[in-house]
Design a protein around this nucleic acid. Sequence first.
RNA 1: GCGGACGUGGUGGAACUGGUAGACACACGGGACUUAAAAUCCCGAGGGAGUAACCUCCCGUGCGGGUUCGACUCCCGCCGUCCGCACCA
Length: 875
Amino acid sequence: MVQSRYNPRERESHWQKIWNDKDLFLAREDAKGEKYYVLEMFPYPSGRIHMGHVRNYTMGDVVARYKRARGFNVLHPMGWDAFGMPAENAAIERGVHPAKWTYANIDAMRTQLKALGLSLDWSRELATCDPEYYAQEQKLFLDFLEAGIVSRHSANVNWDPVDHTVLANEQVIDGKGWRSGAEVEQRELTQWFFKISVMAEELLQALDGLERWPEKVRTMQRNWIGKSEGLQFKLDLVDDEGASAGELEVFSTRHDTIFGMTFCAVSMDHPLTAEAAKTNQALGKYIEECRRSGTTEEALEKAEKTGHVLDVRVAHPFIDGKTVPVLTANFVLMGYGTGAIFGCPGHDQRDFDFCKALGLDIIPVVAPDDLKGVELVSYIEDYSDRPEIYDGEGTLINSEFLDGMTIIEAKQEIAKRFEAMDKGERQVNYRLRDWGISRQRYWGCPIPVIHCGACGIVPVRAADLPVKLPEDVSFDKPGNPLDRHPTWKNTTCPTCGKDATRETDTFDTFVDSSWYFARFCSPRADVPAVREAVDAWLPVDQYIGGIEHAILHLLYSRFFTRAMKETGHAGLSEPFDGLFTQGMVNHETYKLEDGAWVVPADVKIEGEGDARRAVHVTTCAPVTIGSIEKMSKSKHNTVDPEDIIGHYGADTIRWFMLSDSPPERDVQWTEAGVAGAWRFVQRLWRLMGKASSWIAPAKSEMPGELSEPALELRGVSHRRIQRVSEAIESLKFNVAVAQVHEFTRVIETVVGNPKYEDDAGIKWAAREACEIVIQMFGSMMPHLGEECWSMLDHDQLLAETPWPQADPALLVEDTVTIAVQVNGKRRDELTVARNASKEDIEAAALKLDNVLRAIEGRDVKKVIVVPQRIVNVVA
RNA sequence: GCGGACGUGGUGGAACUGGUAGACACACGGGACUUAAAAUCCCGAGGGAGUAACCUCCCGUGCGGGUUCGACUCCCGCCGUCCGCACCA
């Protein structure tokens, strides 16, 4: 009996088993073909996959399958970013051990991913919480330590009071912890750091070479590294009496405006402030006040610029006898430059605001070049009343020996003079800080060092690695369980043998994800990375993931790859040749009257357009339809991929994810859209069922002479190969989908058409078309592809079949339809032979009724003919 | 404030290098099949005007200019939306 419907539930697992049994997707270094490494950002094992994963991994899988069909030797692995706080939270809330929780989640998610039919090399699967993985991470760390890439020092760190741990600067967003959302506090702790800042220039420069990265991500990284070139120099401090009182070192990128200096300001954390606060109670109070208003987003945004005058003054370096006040100011940051600035209110907006508020002098020292005479005089006179400062190009004024110079010249002159006095030097500053990697958590990779009273910090011996996490830990008290684990924490010093303690901090989990792409090359090796394997596979040719990792993960990975190069573990600097950041999956939100969010599965929608109404399925209560937002647990607007796969199958969800929206933009999940994808799956299946008995038999020869429609169909097919290939190459999956739709429509009009019943040529061309369309959608809907492929009597699997070659002779059409314009407006069209001469086209165009009418008897001045494109008659 | 991206029908979007704007899909309307429904198939559609009809004309890619035989595409100036960064001296 012929089934009237394709049953994905049964067929998808059938094909998955066959792929698996044949080990089709295992990557081997000795395999034929140029290597191609496609990687999607590995997931955190939260327990269930979400739609974002489906979108991400589907895209990667299309690329992997396409490249494989194109003859590339493809590496397409999957792993788990498995350390991190949710596991500990589960332990605290539910008493389940983080390891048990994590591995159970991994098992569940692996099953879900497998149901998607992804062409992954599961033999390379890794989990960062596996001692096999983190042992190698510890080795890397010890190598980095030896190479001087690691440091340990006391530092003011960002402390997350909720998660009880330190955060890297990159993990503080608007003054709050990136996970907990808690207000971050400053604490002084001794920490381990990766010296990423010494690579700032290199990391910045190399961004220019990352041509297959989105400009947006490169810009974000540039801003994050935050290079600024300026002059760091010392100014003389004087006391009330005019006697020397030491020096104040400042950093400026606008040292050309030194004659506009009317004050100096220091941070409240600056030594000068601390010194003065000892005797100055009012200052102490002021500092306290500033700290209280804090570093929150709102506070910073609204904060008035305030300052508190100190007892010392600064002597102007080039104007004898002139001194300016020194203030502690709330807008000066200790963490940047020297924590002290010279203020030039004339050409710095902050300084300008500050001076207006405090009534300090404002001296303009740069004037736009186009100002002359009276204009220039009034520019200077009215300067203080301007709403905004002038910070454009110009010529120096009011600046003695700098007068008349350009800004660049003045900067050079000032730098030269300070250098000659031995009081300053040109300096490049970066915003990028060293990466603090110590975390006071249990569920992370232990930092493999031992603290010995006699020997100090002693690295764990290679033979003693890995430093495994102890399993018998309790989460009944806040803080790090490792810190109170007596048998694990207490050990002996590898050097002197005396009693010693282990480092109880673990790595930031971003360390784990900074090299996993390298580990995939040799996932079971007992060294971090086998050089031959790394050299063979890296860089990742196409990396796909969310924009949320534009800075953190991608910058750290770039750093890590360089560090691995320095320590001989890799031969390259940039890990990701091509980067693609995909958009999010959005959905409408639903709310009950009491404000509670409702999941889409519990909402029934009636009506359409403005008349759309929603009701709660179980209670029939009215539901308000809210805005379209990113699917998130907090808004309850999530759709579980497993439900969709169970209902429609993996191919449908994959197809929908690739349709319509360009992959870099957000996609809106809609039930109607999925249903549409489902209908298309069925349509293709029916078409192939019909075709299997109608088209020419498999492996039959092409009949000698093809009829016109047969040739035409072949043309359509072969042009489609080209267009779909181009679309997939450039990751425009939505365009590829549209091409398949269009192509399918064409095939449908041919297959089974009684008109062609006796045309052996078209039956042959129809077979070719059917095979091509299967191959075109096969990377996107691989199960359906195999199903249809086998329906057409193929013994070989589609997954093993090479991508079809487009016949160049068929790519060009014999006749082309071109538009005919009169004065740039389209009036008619013309179908001519492809190779028709300009003269013939012109003559034909000038005979068209619509053209003659449009000309209305005027003289034809000019006729522009672009063969195969357009004719424009200028009258 | 700085930086980036974007703005096209009811909706998502397509348009090669400046050459027929709206492919393809969703939603919609009409029809066929059916006792009926589902499923499926066919047809229609940017807006407006004229015509019995074939068709024809006008307007149209956020707004205003410009370059060009020709502009969604390039240039200048605005407006708007989204994202990122932000007292970084």
